[in-house]
């Protein structure tokens, strides 16, 4: 990667990145991996999800993301699944077993695992 030389280059690059991460066929599984989450076992959850995605051959469609704090410390580890065109869903109290269930049910069968859903209680400024 060369240095960005001006605002135009940045804009172009932004558009490319945006497409890469939130294109119409990009499913994102985000694992909250701040200190709290990791202490509660988010690392194992991440590995479990990544393993499952590989095993199921979803590597092209699904990006598994190590992210920061999602805010719901009381329900760590937390995982958010976002499928283009659908409202993203936040899950709490995930362990490596439940993680596999999420991948199978939510991604493969498109079924929300309702008993693990946390209310996503915030809006983000646009």
């Amino acid at each position: 990667m060369k240095k960005l030389k001006n605002i135009e280059e940045l804009k172009d690059f932004r558009d490319k990145c945006a497409e890469k991460f939130s294109g119409p066929d990009k499913i994102r599984i985000i694992v909250g991996m701040a200190t709290c989450g990791i202490a509660a076992g988010a690392g194992e959850v991440f590995d479990s999800i990544a393993g499952e995605v590989m095993k199921l051959g979803l590597g092209d469609k699904v990006t598994v993301v190590r992210s920061g704090c999602m805010g719901a410390c009381h329900a760590e580890p937390t995982v958010e699944i976002s499928i283009p065109g659908e409202e993203s869903v936040l899950y709490g109290n995930i362990d490596s077993q439940r993680a596999k269930v999420l991948v199978k049910n939510h991604i493969m069968r498109n079924e929300v695992v309702t008993e693990l859903v946390l209310e996503k209680a915030y809006e983000t400024i646009s």
Partner: peptide, 16 residues
């Protein structure tokens, strides 16, 4: 919704 994220808008969303 009671919460509004400005400072935290990317937290838990992007890969830092």
């Amino acid at each position: 919704k009671k919460q509004l994220r400005i400072a935290l808008k990317n937290c838990g969303v992007i890969d830092p």
